[in-house]
């Protein structure tokens, strides 16, 4: 499913930066991702037009930063912290277990759009390592099996919400 982005879709976001300066590029991209869950090709082209920059520059900036996604986010979005404390406490196994349970490597979304999995460098909750977030809710001291369970429970919740 591709969301078509005419430049008019961007108006409410770009309008907040009337001087169209380069320094607004990252905030604009962040707001689009906040709204759409990811950066589509069309969105990046539209941003380039709006800020009068070559598309290559927009793409260059977007791909430089880990925060930006180029695939839609799954309904259940899992992030695994891979900071030092989490590593020492076994986050590699947590990630490994989740990758196998979900069936896609980190950084991707399942075909059915149910799960997406992401690695983050550090969430700053090192005192309670290892940490994962599921749909932006932080879960502390998780075991590999625990993480799998959390993802499954979240998926069940999603499907209930859909049925209702």
């Amino acid at each position: 499913m591709v969301v078509a982005h005419r430049s008019s879709d961007l108006d409410p976001i770009v309008a907040r930066y009337p001087d169209r300066r380069r320094e607004h590029l990252i905030p604009v991209l962040q707001e689009i991702q906040e709204r759409d869950g990811y950066l589509s090709r069309d969105a990046m082209k539209a941003v380039a037009r709006a800020l009068e920059l070559p598309v290559s520059k927009v793409y260059g900036v977007a791909t430089f930063y880990n925060q930006f996604r180029f695939e839609p986010r799954g309904k259940v979005h899992c992030q695994v912290c891979r900071g030092t404390a989490c590593h020492v406490k076994g986050s590699a196994q947590v990630l490994d277990t989740l990758e196998r349970a979900i069936g896609v490597p980190a950084g991707h979304t399942t075909r059915d759009g149910l799960y997406s999995l992401e690695v983050v460098a550090c969430m700053g909750a090192c005192g309670l390592a290892p940490v994962v977030t599921i749909n932006d809710e932080v879960h502390a001291l998780v075991s590999p099996d625990g993480a799998k369970r959390l993802a499954r429970v979240a998926a069940k919740k999603e499907s209930h919400r859909h049925d209702a």
């Binding site: 891979r82 030092t84 404390a85 460098a121 550090c122 090192c126």
Partner: peptide
């Protein structure tokens, strides 16, 4: 921009 994995002083 507390990027050092394992540090969370600034956040706190």
């Amino acid at each position: 921009d507390e990027g050092d994995p394992g540090a969370f002083m600034d956040r706190a």
